[in-house]
């Protein structure tokens, strides 16, 4: 058995384990879905008319087209929570020692978590999109735009999952691991998700314009509106790749330190 087939087989075993956890304890996945759905209901159903005025629309239908891409990003960011908790739980319990005393591919534990988390996040994001559509969200996107949007979202998901792995490895206990991803979850608020950054006070506005979620949000908005935005897309890709590399590198260093060879 080559190193690669062994790594693949071991990662698949770890993935099966994580998906079984998710199916058996769906509460975290559901919690990750509930926040964006509640915000969608609240901001469109309750504040929709007022906020619609603020973004230059007026009718409720206009505001949902403005806010839906941001809500989709929140769904993806919410996926971080369960990843961090799962990683931290594994690292603080005896099971990781069992894996480490077996001749298995070392990378498989983290790979299994990352792939498992991404599958969970895809499912919860699809649920959020379905709710948005049910509430009247419609796009003018062509198939190609949809594919580009999906590709961007998957890349963001990959990057944020590795960041979440890092946070899970840093946390001393699962309670701690459930706190730090909250920052990521709420970042889209201080961006262009709910209202345009132009409407914010100067300091906050500066932050909102330069934080990673804003270009991703704008790029996604562009694809879904059928009017792709080249500049934001490029900036988004740079952010995603940067976050993925940083998250992966930190995770690897931390994992090797916590579980030396």
């Amino acid at each position: 058995m080559t190193a690669f087939t062994q790594a693949t087989a071991d990662s698949a075993t770890m993935l099966r384990r994580n998906l079984r956890h998710a199916l058996r304890y769906p509460s975290l996945t559901i919690a990750g879905m509930m926040m964006p759905i509640l915000i969608l209901l609240l901001f469109v159903g309750v504040f929709g008319n007022a906020l619609g005025d603020g973004v230059g629309g007026g009718a409720k239908g206009d505001y949902i087209s403005y806010v839906a891409p941001g809500i989709i990003l929140m769904a993806i960011a919410s996926g971080c929570l369960s990843t961090s908790i799962a990683i931290c739980t594994d690292m603080t319990e005896g099971i990781v020692d069992r894996f480490r005393t077996m001749a298995i591919a070392r990378s498989s534990l983290l790979t299994g978590h990352v792939v498992g988390s991404m599958i969970q996040t895809v499912v919860s994001t699809a649920g959020v999109v379905a709710v948005a559509v049910a509430m009247g969200y419609r796009t003018h996107a062509a198939l190609l735009d949809w594919l580009a949007a999906t590709g961007l979202l998957v890349l963001l998901m990959f990057a944020l999952t590795w960041v979440a792995v890092t946070l899970g490895l840093i946390a001393k206990n699962p309670e701690g691991a459930s706190n730090s991803p909250l920052i990521i979850q709420f970042l889209p608020f201080v961006g262009s998700a709910i209202v345009p950054p132009e409407s914010m006070p100067a300091g906050v506005r500066w932050f909102a314009e330069y934080q990673p979620f804003t270009p991703v949000n704008e790029a996604l908005r562009g694809f879904l509106a059928g009017t792709p935005n080249g500049h934001d897309t490029v900036v988004s890709l740079i952010w995603c790749v940067g976050l993925a590399v940083a998250g992966y590198t930190c995770s690897k260093v931390l994992f090797d330190r916590k579980a030396p060879r």
């Binding site: 079984r20 956890h21 058996r24 319990e93 005896g94 099971i95 020692d97 069992r98 005393t101 001749a103």
Partner: peptide
């Protein structure tokens, strides 16, 4: 690792 099996003090089982 191929030759050994280890049962530590704290159970290394998956509770879920």
């Amino acid at each position: 690792r191929r030759a050994i099996g280890v049962t530590g003090q704290y159970s290394a089982v998956d509770g879920l």
